[in-house]
Design a protein around this nucleic acid. Structure first.
Lengths: 250, 250
DNA sequence: TTCCATTTGTTCGTATGTATA
DNA sequence: TTATACATACGAACAAATGGA
C-alpha cells in the first residue's frame, strides 16, 4: 500500500499534477518497483483524499508518460524501465551504459572461428562491398546487460587476420573497443544499421528473459575502420519491451 | 509450375549458384510475383534435374538474400519487397519515394484543430521543451503509399498560429513540405526520433492491409525549424513486414 | 480433439573432383 | 605418387511443423 501521509496539496497547481509528481518521484526513487501492482483507483483516490476522477486523470497522465501501464479489468502497474539506445556514429556499449548509472556487462556466450563460406548471412555481408574476402572470421556471441537486466544479444563477426585472436582475447573480459585497439584498430565507426522487428524465438526469450509473444528489434550493423574497410558485421537483438531506439541527428 | 527448359548447367560454377541466379532473375523480372508459392523442394529438384540437397542449398541462399521466405511445413514463397526507410536529418516523403520509381501518395484520413490540453501524448511532447505552448494545434492523419502499397499511417501535430490553416490547406493535395513553405516555414529538420515496436491493432491492420499478428514500428518524431523551435510532432506507424528502418551516419 | 497428407528440417551414408602436404 | 582434407553432389530415411478432414 502507498502511504500518502506527507502529501499536502498546494494551491495554484492542479491536484492531479501534484499526484503525478508524487507518484513519479516514488517510481524514480525505487520505492515502487517495476511491475508492482498499484492499488485500485478507488483505493488510491481514498489514500490521496481526492475524487476518483482526479486520481484517474493523474494515472492517465502517468500512462501517457510511460511510467505506469493500465490494464482494463486488471489494474495499474509500474511500467518497466525502457532504455533509450541511440543510433550514433561511434556506438560504444560501455560509454552508453554510463548514462544509466548502472554497471554494464557483456557476457561471452560463444566464441569461435568460422569459415566465411558457411555463414548464413554471407549474401547480405558481401553486398556492402566493404568487407575483405578473408576465408575465416571471428564470431563472438554476447549477452549485454545493464545492471542485472539483459538488454541485447549480439552476434559479432570480425574480419581480418589479426582479429581472429579476439576469440581468445575477449574471454579475458575486456570490452570490444579495448580489445580491437590492442589489435591495431584505433577507431571504428558505424557505416550502416538496418532495423527490423520480429517475434521473439525460444532462445531469445530465455536469454533476454521476456515472455512469449514479445517483440524484438533485429539490427544489422556494419562497422568500418577509419579508411572505410569493413571490420565488423554484427546482428544485435533487443527486446522492444525494454529498449527503444533513438535517432538524433547532429 | 516453373519451366526449366532453358536451364543448362555450365561446368566450373557450382550448380546451386546457377539455380540461385536463375530463380533470382525470374523474381526480378516479375515472372514470379510476391507471395507466390514455389513448388516444393522435391518438385523443384526434379524440375532442375538435381538432388534435393542441391536445391535446398540454392533456396537457403535465396532466403539469406531476402528473395524468398521459407516456412517449415508450408513451403517456400517469393518474398515481399521491403522498403528501406532512411533516418535522415531532412526527411521528405516525396524525395524518398523517388528511389523506388513508383508514384508516392499521402492520403488525408482526418484533419482537425485540437486543444493541446486534450492530447494524450502531451506529456511526451512537453518534455522536449522545444514546442511553444499554443492552446491549439493542427492534427492531420495521413496514409502514405508507394505505388498501391500502404506504407505508413502518420498522425501529425503542427504547432504555431499560422499552421492551423494546414487543416484546410492539405486537403488540396499538396505535400506537407510545400504547404509548410507557404506558411513561412522554409526549412525544417528532424531533432529526434524514437522507435518502438508493437502488435498491429485492428485499425492499423485495415489501413495498412496487414495480417493479424503482424508487427508495426511506432516512430515518434520531433521536427524543428532552422532556429530550433518545434514545428511538428508526429507519430508514424510502419508495417515491419514492408518497411525496414535504416541508419546511415554522415 | 485426433488423424493424415504435405512440406521443410536433419542426419545418416556414398561418391567424385580438387587442392594441399 | 600418395595421403589427407574439403567442398560438391546424390540417395534414403526420419523428425518436426503445418493445415485440413
Amino acid at each position: 500500500m502507498i502511504s500518502t501521509s506527507k502529501v499536502q496539496f498546494v494551491p495554484g497547481i492542479t491536484i492531479w499534477k501534484q499526484i503525478v509528481d508524487d507518484l513519479q518521484a516514488r517510481i524514480d526513487s525505487g520505492e515502487l518497483v517495476e511491475n508492482q501492482k498499484l492499488p485500485g483507483e478507488a483505493d488510491l483516490a481514498k489514500a490521496y483524499g481526492v475524487n476518483r476522477h482526479t486520481m484517474r486523470r493523474a494515472l492517465q497522465e502517468l500512462a501517457a508518460m510511460g511510467k505506469v501501464r493500465i490494464q482494463h479489468g486488471r489494474g495499474s502497474f509500474v511500467a518497466k524501465h525502457v532504455f533509450d539506445y541511440e543510433l550514433v556514429e561511434r556506438p560504444r556499449f560501455s560509454e552508453w551504459v554510463k548514462k544509466y548509472n548502472k554497471p554494464g556487462k557483456n557476457d561471452i556466450l560463444e566464441a569461435a572461428i568460422l569459415n566465411l563460406a558457411e555463414l548464413p548471412e554471407l549474401a547480405r555481408i558481401q553486398q556492402y562491398g566493404v568487407f575483405p574476402e578473408y576465408s575465416q572470421v571471428a564470431m563472438i556471441k554476447t549477452l549485454g546487460r545493464v545492471g542485472e537486466e539483459p538488454i541485447s544479444i549480439a552476434r559479432h563477426l570480425f574480419f581480418g587476420e589479426a582479429l581472429l585472436a579476439l576469440v581468445d582475447d575477449l574471454h579475458a573480459g575486456r570490452g570490444i573497443t579495448e580489445s580491437l585497439r590492442q589489435h591495431g584498430i584505433q577507431d571504428y565507426t558505424r557505416m550502416r544499421s538496418t532495423i527490423s522487428a520480429a517475434m521473439s524465438g525460444p532462445q531469445e526469450r530465455e536469454l533476454l528473459q521476456v515472455e512469449k509473444g514479445e517483440i524484438v528489434f533485429v539490427c544489422e550493423n556494419v562497422n568500418v575502420d577509419t579508411s572505410g574497410v569493413g571490420i565488423e558485421f554484427s546482428t544485435v537483438i533487443y527486446p522492444s519491451s525494454r529498449v527503444r531506439l533513438v535517432y538524433e541527428p547532429g
